[in-house]
Computed example of a mutant assay.
Amino acid sequence: MRVRDEFGVVFESERFVAAFAHRGGPSVSPGMLALVSVLQYAERLTDRQAADAVRGRID
């Protein structure tokens, strides 16, 4: 949220729509998923480490 507050929208969802299925239930916006992936890569976190970090911040 701090990244969004500081920089505004970094990735526009419309640029990533083709990469996601059109069926199924609602999900997070494609732009948000792209941003999370970039930040995870920048921090050099595995998927498990990223999930643990999120759980730690929710607590």
Rank of each mutant, 00 (worst) to 15 (best):
G56V: 00
R55K: 07
E6Q: 13
M32S: 13
I58S: 15
D47Q: 14
D52H: 08
R2L: 09
R57Q: 11
V10L: 14
V9A: 14
M32R: 15
P26K: 13
R57L: 09
E6P: 07
R55I: 05
L39K: 07
E6H: 12
L45R: 01
R2V: 10
M1E: 02
E6M: 12
A21K: 02
S13G: 09
P30F: 03
A51C: 11
S13T: 11
L45C: 04
A50S: 10
V28A: 13
L45I: 00
S29Q: 08
R2G: 10
V17Q: 03
S13I: 08
G31A: 06
R55G: 04
R44V: 04
Y41D: 09
V54K: 12
A34N: 05
G56D: 01
R2W: 11
A21S: 06
R44A: 06
A18P: 06
F16Y: 10
Q40R: 08
V10C: 15
R57F: 06
R2N: 13
E43K: 12
D52W: 06
F11Q: 13
R4N: 01
L35W: 06
F20H: 12
Q40W: 02
G56K: 02
R4Q: 03
A50W: 10
D59K: 10
M1D: 03
E12R: 14
D52F: 05
Q40K: 05
F11E: 15
S37V: 08
V3R: 07
A50I: 07
